[in-house]
Write a protein that binds this DNA or RNA. Structure first.
Lengths: 206, 206
DNA sequence: ACCTGAACACCGTTCAAGT
DNA sequence: ACCTGAACACCGTTCAAGT
């Protein structure tokens, strides 16, 4: 049993390391060469496991999806509790990796796990009285809202370059700024999620 | 009146040309050097008007926002009609520039026009009986859903690399694929928009 | 057969040298 | 003072040369 001095490279390990690197230095500073160095292999080693950077980013998206741990979602509960938990899990996972949100948001995750999770959700909602096509549409709406939300939050959070908001004494202080001050930057997520779920509930069996 | 042989460079003209170039060759093929060439000036001319590529992309986002033409929205109608039209305008504008959606989605638009439009919307909704903070939250929800939607659509549309969906005869043909076949790729937008607006209506004066 | 890194064809951005 | 493009410090990716 000859042990290599460094961990054996696998697609999963490379993708996980790439995600860590993106978390650390940001997406725009990330490079294939730095990943090679981080792995301790020659800069081109990654190309033996991924066709190109796009394929590697697909791997990062799959890693994020795995982090959702969909297995532990409340599959025994109602469709609404499941949808709520799924929404919160997805949002929390994305917000835990602010630099990687754009990577996740710009590609569909087509791993077996992701397809399986989607299938189970449609099945559960169908059993709850939704037409399959309606269930799919509902899931798409939720996913798009969550991704749009996570993207907006992280983009603002990471781009704290020069906050242009005028001080309260300024005469240009508007209704917009006033409203913004009285609302935290993300507490509308629950509002939007509940709004969608409340309305979707009426499309089901009841 | 000495006319230059080429159009005078302005920030707006450069940003509009950059958007055209992104539309044509895609965001990942776009470069500052190609933009310089496209403008007919030396490759570095753009740097006299924009600090760097990020600032130029901010300009592209502002150009897209201008294309919304918020002035012609139904400001005299109900908040709901206004919100609906705004949502459709924003979606249509983004879908008209599939290669530029990621640019718009990854930065806040802070132009005077954008801030003014936001302010007017909050004011109109406040007059309709919403608390300003609630109105702001509602607008954020809508914006995030629309952006998430446009991003999902264009990403799938542009990335038609290898569609992995199995044929109907295949035994792996799942409920998911079946539901996907019976639904077009974007008809859930109206469902999600109406779902949000229906619920939000209950937060107002009525 | 597998691994390596030199090399190619690009980038964004700076800045010295021109006018 | 303004304009230009050479030059710097990188990229992603290929592929000839090694083992």
């Amino acid at each position: 049993m000859k042990q290599p001095t460094r961990p054996t490279l696998t697609r999963e390990y490379i993708a996980a390391t790439a995600l860590e690197l993106v978390d650390t230095i940001g997406r725009e500073k990330f490079s294939m060469r730095k990943l090679g160095a981080e792995l301790g292999f020659d800069p081109m080693a990654v190309y033996r496991y991924f066709a190109d950077q796009e394929a590697l980013f697909d791997g990062i998206a799959e890693t994020l999806f795995r982090e959702l741990d969909t297995e532990t979602l409340p599959w025994q509960g109602s469709w609404r509790v499941l949808a709520e938990q799924y929404a919160h899990r997805l949002r929390d996972t994305l917000l835990a990796h602010p630099h990687a949100v754009t990577i996740f948001a710009t590609r569909p995750v087509r791993s077996a796990a992701a397809i399986d999770t989607g299938t189970r959700m449609i099945e559960l909602m169908t059993a709850a009285g939704f037409a399959p096509a309606v269930a799919l549409r509902i899931m798409r709406c939720l996913r798009e809202f969550i991704i749009g939300h996570a993207l907006s939050l992280t983009v603002v959070q990471l781009g704290e370059r020069r906050s242009r908001k005028p001080a309260p004494e300024s005469e240009t202080y508007t209704v917009l700024a006033e409203a913004a001050d009285s609302t935290s930057v993300d507490d509308h997520f629950e509002l939007g999620l509940a709004a969608m779920l409340d309305s979707f509930a009426r499309l089901g069996s009841e």
